[in-house]
Design a protein around this nucleic acid. Structure first.
Lengths: 229, 229
DNA sequence: CACTGAAGGCTCGATAGCCAGACCTTTTTC
DNA sequence: GAAAAAGGTCTGGCTATCGAGCCTTCAGTG
């Protein structure tokens, strides 16, 4: 209740926002960011602050800039190697999973309530895509992320999309640990299919159950690999 | 995706934290806060910053200070009148409800999974309490808040408790609008009872359904009173 | 080939928030 | 009357951020 107040600086928040977007593939390799003068206006910060963030992401290999007309800031094409998950996240991985469970289940229920068939169709296509990508782990991960974020988008709530992307950003560092034999992926994707079916028929309770089970799968694997906390 | 970065200052965050705790009754009228020198250490901020926050809450009538030995900062005993909900919250009330739905449903599922009987017992007692308070709206509201926050505590995740209190803080300003005939309260409390029953037997899907229905009740009433957005 | 416009790169001064600490005043307790 | 425990006040310094101007690079255009 009187836990430390730790407000992020604008610089930190910007690095995290852009960095997460890149790591999750929301800003794909090669993509061009808006010009600095536009971007800082969008983000509501000064250009000097934005540049600090861009510089940091440049040094970590996520961005590179080209000067001159037609230049700009681009997402690095060979993405930099993902650093090992921070010990801080590792120490609290169970809390991270809990929060993920809460948000994703909530999103699933809300999505089931809203049930826009066209959006569910799009998500179904991602499931098919994943089935074709059983070997290509990075691509399959990104499709998985798009699926989960897409579900959040289907709720129509911007704040839930934000919460979902943040959650995915944190959990991705953990998931990178897990071995991914094709049969695990396939079973996980089967859960996706059942989840979407429940969402499509507006079955809130079913969606909640499927999502909970889906996430528990990840959790169990992590529990076997990570230290007790 | 490039939405404005708006980082709260330590001062703002402190006012919000303490103010919410007071408005939700987590810091009951008459309660004494830790001494300034301790409190600022707990919150990890400078005393001058903390004092700004305390001053602000004093001027809004939520706190009053007594000097001298045995003095301290106390929660005002006749709580100040709640100001009308901010137009900003009113404009986005549907998003607020969505976020609440997601978090509370997620919490309900997680609580059902964990299911610590003793904690559920405590929550059951709150339900009984509410049944005895059908006339006393403020007291009944606070009991309701304690029930929902208690459910979050039952998940064992500190971050979910934080999310829940924040959500309750925002939604409370809206709920103050609603007429509360005893029969509405009674029916809402019956939902509490069914919800806790589902949690107790570890029925995740059931808990999700009950919680969703419970919150939808509030939403429908609000929809009738507030402007379309 | 020179010019232009659009982009990143750089610098500087002003401001605000925050911190750390010392000191003052009030009140109770011994 | 002294000590202790609290809130109240003041000052100086640090850092993040802002805002604005100017420089450099370079593709396109005439």
């Amino acid at each position: 209740m009187f836990a430390p107040v730790r407000s992020q600086t604008a610089f930190e928040e910007t690095v995290e926002r852009l960095g997460t977007a890149i790591k999750l593939g929301l800003l794909p390799p090669g993509a061009r960011l808006p010009a600095e003068r536009e971007l800082c206006a969008m983000l509501g910060i000064a250009r000097s602050t934005l540049r600090q963030a861009l510089l940091a992401l440049g040094q970590s290999g996520h961005l590179h800039a080209l000067r001159g007309r037609g230049g700009g800031t681009f997402v690095a094409d060979p993405p930099p190697p993902t650093p090992p998950a921070s010990p801080e996240v590792l120490a609290h991985w169970r809390e991270v999973c809990d929060e993920r469970m809460a948000i994703e289940v909530g999103v699933a229920v809300l999505a089931a309530e809203r049930a826009q068939p066209e959006l569910v169709d799009a998500l179904d296509r991602i499931v098919v895509e994943i089935d074709d990508l059983l070997d290509d782990f990075p691509a399959q991960r990104q499709a998985d992320i798009r699926l989960h974020v897409g579900l959040a988008e289907a709720t129509g709530s911007g704040r839930l999309v934000t919460a979902m992307t943040e959650t995915q950003g944190v959990i991705s560092g953990l998931i990178a640990f897990i071995a991914h034999p094709p049969e695990v992926i396939a079973s996980s994707n089967a859960q996706h299919r059942r989840l979407l079916a429940a969402v499509r028929r507006g079955d809130e309770a079913g969606a909640a159950r499927e999502m909970a089970e889906h996430l528990r799968g990840t959790e169990h694997i992590l529990a076997g690999l990570l230290p007790r906390d």
